[in-house]
C-alpha cells in the first residue's frame, strides 16, 4: 500500500506552515524584546515592571484587537503580543489544511471531525473569554 501523493503533499504543506508560523512568531518576539530593551519602557510601563516575576502587568492588559494600533505606534509589547498570537494560531491553521485534504479526498467522516475540532477551538477563543467576564 503506497502513501497517496495527496497525503504526501499535505504533509509537506503542514510542515511548511508550522515552520513559517514558528519562525515569524519568534522573529516578532525577538524584535519586540530588542525594542523593549532599546526604549526602556512600553505604553507607559517601565521595563523593570515588565520584566518582574511578580509583575502586576500581564496579558490581560493587552487586548489582541489593539495589535494594529500598537504596531503603528511601534509599541514593543504589541510586537510580542502579535508574536504570541501568531504562535497560538499556527496549530489551528494545520487543522484547516488537514480539513482541505479531507474535503478533496471526499472523506466525510474526517471533514465532520475536523469541523468539531475547529468549533471547540473557536468556542474557547471567542465565546468563553467574554462569558467569564460578563
Amino acid at each position: 500500500m503506497n502513501v497517496p501523493s495527496k497525503q504526501r503533499d499535505i504533509d509537506s504543506i503542514t510542515s511548511l506552515i508550522l515552520r513559517v508560523g514558528v519562525l515569524s512568531s519568534l522573529s516578532l518576539i525577538i524584535v519586540g524584546v530588542i525594542l523593549l530593551f532599546i526604549r526602556g519602557s512600553a505604553d507607559g510601563v517601565s521595563i523593570s515592571q515588565i520584566a518582574s516575576f511578580h509583575s502586576t502587568f500581564n496579558s490581560s492588559y493587552l487586548n489582541p484587537t489593539h495589535i494594529v494600533q500598537g504596531l503603528i505606534a511601534v509599541d514593543p509589547l504589541y510586537f510580542i503580543t502579535l508574536g504570541l498570537w501568531v504562535l497560538i494560531f499556527t496549530p489551528i491553521t494545520v487543522v484547516f489544511t488537514s480539513m482541505v485534504t479531507f474535503i478533496t479526498a471526499g472523506n466525510r467522516l474526517y471533514i465532520a471531525m475536523s469541523l468539531i475540532v475547529l468549533f471547540n477551538l473557536f468556542f474557547a477563543m471567542l465565546a468563553i473569554p467574554s462569558l467569564i467576564h460578563t
Binding site: 515588565i50 520584566a51 500581564n58 496579558s59 492588559y61 493587552l62 509589547l77 496549530p91 475540532v117 467576564h133
Partner: peptide
C-alpha cells in the same frame, strides 16, 4: 500544539501570560 492553543486564549484574558 492544538490542545494548548485551545487553552491559550482563556489564559491570555485571565492574565496568566507574562510577556517577558
Amino acid at each position: 500544539g492544538i490542545t494548548a492553543a485551545t487553552g491559550s486564549s482563556i489564559y491570555w484574558y485571565e492574565g496568566y501570560i507574562q510577556l517577558f
